[in-house]
Nucleic acid binder design. Sequence first.
DNA 1: AATAATTAGTTAGAAGGGCTAATTGTTAGA
DNA 2: TCTAACAATTAGCCCTTCTAACTAATTATT
Lengths: 153, 153
Amino acid sequence: MSVPPEEAAKDVFEVVPIIMREIRSVMRSKRPPVLTVPQYRALSFVDRNAGASLLDVANHLGLTPPSTSKLVDGLIGHGLMTREEQPVDRRRLKLAVTDRGHKDMIAARQGTLAYLTDRLRNMDEGDREVIARAMKALHLIFTGNPKIGERWG
Amino acid sequence: MSVPPEEAAKDVFEVVPIIMREIRSVMRSKRPPVLTVPQYRALSFVDRNAGASLLDVANHLGLTPPSTSKLVDGLIGHGLMTREEQPVDRRRLKLAVTDRGHKDMIAARQGTLAYLTDRLRNMDEGDREVIARAMKALHLIFTGNPKIGERWG
DNA sequence: AATAATTAGTTAGAAGGGCTAATTGTTAGA
DNA sequence: TCTAACAATTAGCCCTTCTAACTAATTATT
């Protein structure tokens, strides 16, 4: 049976927001610490790319520089990230995750993954394979990057 | 090859936020009108369930009553929804979508679907089928409802 | 009928998310 | 040098979502 792009689009549009709400809810419910999804994503990126600049983070998150600046502000305010000046190019920041930021990030990740894993446990193994394949295909068309999972080491 | 729930969870956790950001971005970029995702979802629900109460909307969206109240406030302020009193139970609201609300909702939906459709067009047909199947499986485990797509008539 | 408990919805206040436009400093180039 | 480009921030806007505390209306209890 052939699936036209219109139908797949409708399915994605209906299901993705539902799952996203779950993810957000789980991630924000860990307390303390409380991490929002963008905060988690920023921490995770800087954790893997120590010394990243603000624009690096903005590009990775798909946010504008001002939004990212505010986001980083909040993380620094909570002691989860640091902002350093670089002697090489004083315009460019050097962001880094603190120990506490690293721990909070890991906690948020594990909590969310545990929840999702639990949800995915009681289903047909074939369905799980379909989901994994679908996610890889979606990742490719939405990011252009065929690699997935590298953020997980 | 077997896909353990942990792996599928990681894939979902990585990809869903990316797609969601795209959806949000596209939906908010139509101007005028500008509808956010929660605004769209509230309109869409009330459009299909005229006379719904605030709690009906809150439950459907997975939001608290105060959040929903504020959300509805905004929609009414923009002339997209109406709030009526019911003589039967004067505590219970009767929400309805205005003509303009209906039109804006359709416009937001079509714009977003057009974008997603476009993205999904240039891919292997087999991948599209995998995506459609994955979305149906995910919909079932996250909502308990096997039916999908009814919202699209 | 009077009182208590529940239910529907709102208000207030907080922290965050995301944008555009305008600004400050810094570096590189003609 | 002087200008253009760049990195980041500030200001100001509106939306999201929560908890806590509240009002008003209904139902249940005595």
